[in-house]
Design a protein around this nucleic acid. Structure first.
Lengths: 107, 107
DNA sequence: CATATTCATAACTAAATAGTTATGGGATTA
DNA sequence: TAATCCCATAACTATTTAGTTATGAATATG
């Protein structure tokens, strides 16, 4: 699933969700039960967070019997990287303009 | 001001705040009045958003007479870039492990 | 000095959100 | 089949939050 920066920022703004996503990135695929274990919140809360992460395209669920294995969806962060890159680029462009200006003033 | 990923994500999760920050990145320094003009929300709302962006280290205010000029604070995005980089790195590490495993299984 | 302008803060309201407990459906196990 | 386990959803609550209007402080202008 493709996701706009808006959904991504909103999904990652919550500490519990970010922690879940980090765990999936660092430790790999996990069941809801395993994720609930170290989360400090109830299982329904974890499920709801995973739903939001999934809707943002950040995670993926794989049903296996009665348990669901969740994993991080790597490419989902791309729009974030793009966005930060864009902001940086424009800033540098303005900085270059300033440098140009200063150079021209020097002459 | 230094900022943790948490403050950054929270600050940038709101569309109005992100729009303000983008304008400051793309168009450079602006007064509150100028920012309010194209924002679609009231001046107090803009001021409040700017306060939150400032607390997250994303913008900087410069008093000049009765108006305040705000500008984007470039380095503030660094923790975000770091964070996304970390997540990517771990994912790639797991991917490398998988490749290693497959190679070893091949032999 | 009197008036107008610019911004920030206070006080309030409506909506969104993150958590809870309760429940039920589907899959395993005895 | 009966009991158990895993997860998702429903229903509710408390808190946070994004917006509003009102106001005031500081600066500029007539």
């Amino acid at each position: 699933m493709q996701s706009s920066p808006d959904l991504l920022f909103k999904a990652l703004a919550d500490p519990s969700r970010r922690a879940l996503f980090e765990r999936l990135c660092l430790e790999g695929e996990q069941t809801v039960g395993a994720l609930t274990a170290g989360a400090g919140i109830s299982q329904p809360a974890v499920s709801k967070h995973l739903g939001i992460l999934k809707q943002a395209g950040l995670v993926q669920g794989r049903d296996e019997g009665r348990q669901t294995h969740y994993s991080a969806q790597q490419r989902a962060l791309a729009p974030l990287v793009d966005w930060t890159g864009r902001m940086n680029r424009f800033w540098e462009a303005r900085f270059d303009d300033l440098e140009d200006l200063l150079k021209r003033m020097d002459q």
